[in-house]
């Protein structure tokens, strides 16, 4: 338990304050997109309200990509994974903790930022609730996907750019169900978003650990 807390504390410290804006940058990015969108589309209230939810989802997805190159690669370069392996701390455990830390660093902050962002794109009360539930269901999956792709692309030259691209492609199901729940207003979309998230959360520790083990050799 104490090993878990020690690892989590380090991950959170690194993600929240570790250079380049830390956890603030994804939030600012998310808000900036929400602010720019009305400028680009024009002051058409019904159109904004109809499409704004989807834009928020795309913004959340892109914001989750920003810390991608800080998730796994620095630790691989520093030899941290070797030291953890020597102490019997499995890569699976480290990756699972990292998913949790990554989610904490952008999931809840984005859910908070979604409130002003919804106002900017003209989304009102009921729909805002759907956006929030959708983000709650979808951001854990985005976090898992980010850590998984970061594990796979760590150590590759240009891995960050490739990683961002991969996350965008693999996040399509999350986006379809998450943003889809807005247009249908139904709980089915939210449930499917959560289901995709759960699958990603279940796969990531093992797939990520396998990738890291092969890169470590």
């Amino acid at each position: 338990m104490s090993t878990f807390l020690t690892l989590l504390r380090r991950d959170l410290a690194r993600l929240f304050s570790g250079g380049r804006g830390g956890a603030l940058l994804p939030v600012l990015f998310f808000l900036a997109v929400a602010m720019l969108y009305p400028f680009a589309v024009g002051p058409d209230g019904p159109l904004l309200a109809k499409t704004g939810g989807g834009v928020l989802w795309v913004a959340a997805l892109l914001a989750a990509i920003l810390p991608l190159d800080r998730l796994i690669e620095p630790d691989l370069e520093l030899g941290m994974f070797d030291q953890w392996a020597l102490r019997g701390i499995s890569e699976e455990g480290v990756v699972a903790v990292r998913v949790l830390a990554h989610w904490l660093s952008f999931g809840p902050p984005l859910m908070l930022a979604a409130v002003p962002a919804s106002a900017l794109v003209g989304i009102d009360g009921g729909k805002l609730a759907t956006v929030e539930w959708g983000l709650l269901a979808g951001t854990p999956g985005l976090a898992a996907l980010g850590v998984l792709v970061a594990s796979i692309t760590a150590g590759l030259r240009g891995g960050a750019a490739l990683g961002g691209f991969l996350v965008m492609l693999l996040a399509v199901p999350l986006l379809i169900f998450g943003a889809g729940s807005l247009s249908t207003g139904g709980e089915a979309g939210l449930a499917l978003t959560a289901a995709v998230s759960l699958v990603l959360l279940a796969i990531t520790p093992f797939a990520g650990a396998a990738a890291i083990q092969s890169e470590r050799g």
């Binding site: 030899g79 070797d82 030291q83």
Partner: peptide
């Protein structure tokens, strides 16, 4: 080894 496994910042 050459990598000291200490956080740089």
């Amino acid at each position: 080894d050459g990598r000291i496994a200490l956080d740089e910042h």
